[in-house]
Each structure stands twice: as structure tokens, then as C-alpha cells.
């Protein structure tokens, strides 16, 4: 039976998940801590900055109770730098995701945010939206996982808080086009047979947009190569004794 929705998240679902991302606000009014299922929000005391989820920040922004501090990567200079990186420095791969968040331990050292100093198997590995990648202290020059959704939402609802919003908007359009072209180009790596599409640093919304297409191409290449692959496998099984080393290559193939 056919499912009504394609596999994976659709853009609206991605945008919904993005609302869990923490953003930094400057409150204008006092607000006591609210105990929520996802944890208590910090008590808001103007003019101290606080980090709260995006949905709450948007609510407070609409009621004019807070101003949102946009993340550093949304600054026009940072976006221009990323576009330069995408077009001139490395025109093949996507710009890298932000480095792991480090926290000072107060004794002159630094360790990763919310992780044990000695990682054990089974430890919690944090990924967005549980990393503070959209707060004011997020590094500039790196696009976080939810970059497109976050910046569109901020521009739509808090444009007066974003410095030079019009310029940011144009730069975002450029960036989106550059990366969409790369996403299309990434599938041509499959031509040689068994190439893997590198999607490091791709944002959630871009994934939701291109998932169907990339899956379709991979599927098609697999189907075209199926008969030859089958013949190769049979050959390999016949000569299995002396070609055991080829097994690891097999895994890399399109399966």
C-alpha cells in the first residue's frame, strides 16, 4: 500500500523541528521560569540575555516583550564569507558544518559542550536542535543544520532585529542557489559507478527539498547497473577463495 507521504521529513515538519532550536533574546519584561516538558525556561530579567526555544522567542517577539539577538552567522559579512568559500575556495563540497561546541572548564582548559571528558560507547551524542548553534555565541562563518529555516523565520518575524535585513535576504537567496546547484552536481559523482555523494554540511531544509531527487537518481543508477552487478557478484563468488579482500569494496558499492 502506498503511503500518502514520501519517506523523510517534508519542509513544514523540518520547520517545526527548527522551532526547538535555542535562540538568544534580550527580554524587555520580567518573566518567571516556565516549567515545560522540555525543561524549565530560564527566568527572564531585563536586560540580561537569555536562551530560549525559537517558538517562545517568536511569541515574545510578537508581543513586543523581547528582542531576538540573531546568530553571528546571519551577519552579512559572515554570509558573504560563506558564499566566497562555496564558490571560490571549494566549488565541489558544501561549506563545513560548525565545529563542535567547546566550553571552558574554568581552569584554562576547554571541553566539548555537554559531553563527558572520556567518551564511552553509549554516551549521548548531541545533534541539533540540542546544540546551541543558533544562539548569539554560535560561531560565524559556519552554517548550522537548520540554517535556512532559522534565517527565513527570523527574517519573516524579527526583521527589525537582523542587521541589514535586505542584504541578508539577497545573500541567502544566492547561497541557496549555489548550494542547490551543488546538490544537483553531487549526483553526477555516481557516474563512475559506486561513487558516494558527499552531503556533509547540508542543511535540514535542503535535505527535505532534494531527498526525492537524490534517492531517485541513486535508485536509477542502481537499477541500470543491477544486471552487471549481479554478474560481477557471481564471478566473485566463484573466485571467493582468493578474492576475499574485495569484500570491503562490495559494501561501498550501490546496494
Amino acid at each position: 500500500m502506498a503511503l500518502p507521504l514520501p519517506p523523510g521529513l517534508v519542509p513544514t515538519e523540518v520547520a517545526f523541528l527548527c522551532e526547538m532550536e535555542l535562540v538568544t533574546i534580550v527580554p524587555r519584561q520580567r518573566l518567571e521560569s516556565i516549567p515545560l516538558l522540555s525543561g524549565a525556561t530560564p527566568a527572564l530579567r531585563p536586560p540580561h540575555r537569555a536562551q530560549i526555544p525559537l517558538w517562545l522567542a517568536l511569541l515574545l517577539k510578537k508581543q513586543r516583550r523581547a528582542n531576538i539577538v540573531p546568530p553571528a552567522w546571519l551577519h552579512p559579512a559572515s554570509l558573504a564569507e560563506i558564499i566566497h568559500q562555496e564558490t571560490n575556495v571549494d566549488s565541489e563540497a558544501f561549506s563545513p558544518p560548525p565545529p563542535p561546541v567547546m566550553r571552558s572548564d574554568g581552569r584554562g582548559g576547554a571541553r566539548q559542550y555537554a559531553s563527558n571528558p572520556e567518551p564511552k560507547p553509549g554516551d549521548l551524542v548531541l545533534s541539533p536542535p540540542f546544540l546551541p548553534s543558533c544562539t548569539a555565541d554560535a560561531p560565524s562563518g559556519y552554517l548550522p543544520y537548520h540554517w535556512l529555516e532559522m534565517s527565513e523565520t527570523l527574517l519573516a518575524h524579527a526583521a527589525d532585529d537582523v542587521p541589514s535585513a535586505a542584504e541578508v535576504r539577497t545573500l541567502l537567496r544566492d547561497l541557496q542557489e549555489v548550494r542547490a546547484a551543488k546538490m544537483r552536481g553531487s549526483t553526477t559523482q555516481l557516474e563512475g559507478g559506486g561513487g558516494v555523494v558527499g552531503l556533509r554540511g547540508v542543511g535540514a531544509m535542503e535535505l527535505a527539498e532534494s531527498r526525492g531527487f537524490v534517492q531517485g537518481v541513486v535508485d536509477g543508477v542502481r537499477k541500470i547497473g543491477a544486471s552487471v552487478e549481479q554478474a560481477r557478484r557471481e564471478d566473485e563468488e566463484r573466485g571467493y577463495g582468493d578474492e576475499g579482500a574485495d569484500e570491503s569494496d562490495d559494501e561501498m558499492g550501490f546496494e
Binding site: P6, A208, F213
Partner: peptide, 24 residues
């Protein structure tokens, strides 16, 4: 096959455009 591929790529672009217009 290519028509099916076109349809999938088109739907993806369309969905994200619809969201982007509705975000306001």
C-alpha cells in the same frame, strides 16, 4: 524514469517554496 525523477524534484522544490511563502 526521467519523468518520475522530474516529478520528485519538482515536488521537493514546490514544497519548500510553499513553506517559504507561508512562513510570514
Amino acid at each position: 524514469w526521467e519523468r518520475a525523477l522530474f516529478l520528485r524534484a519538482h515536488d521537493g522544490a514546490k514544497d519548500s517554496k510553499v513553506w517559504m511563502e507561508g512562513v510570514k
